[in-house]
């Protein structure tokens, strides 16, 4: 999977949920979205990207990726 595209997608999802004042809740909502709509190889690729430093990921997106299922 093209990780740059995944980073863009994760950041866009995070941008929507970022309106939530409780940032922990926002991160859980983003993670829930990733769990429910991202195919496992997409989640694996973005998790590997975070493990490698997570360049380009917004803080909320990065936190959500960490919370998401493998």
């Amino acid at each position: 999977m093209n990780v740059d595209h995944l980073v863009t997608m994760a950041n866009e999802i995070a941008a929507f949920f970022d309106a939530e004042a409780d940032k922990q809740k926002a991160a859980e909502q983003v993670a829930n979205h990733l769990n429910r709509f991202w195919e496992p190889r997409m989640r694996a690729a973005i998790k590997a990207h975070v493990a490698a430093g997570g360049a380009g990921l917004a803080p909320l997106a990065r936190r959500a990726v960490e919370l998401a299922r493998s």
Binding site: M1, N2, H5, R36, F37, W38, E39, P40, R41, M42
Partner: peptide, 18 residues
């Protein structure tokens, strides 16, 4: 039990060979 690929994800996965 896991979600599958959407159309644009299928294209991405095709380009990485999976």
């Amino acid at each position: 039990s896991e979600p599958g690929l959407r159309i644009p994800n299928m294209f991405e996965a095709a380009l990485d060979g999976s």
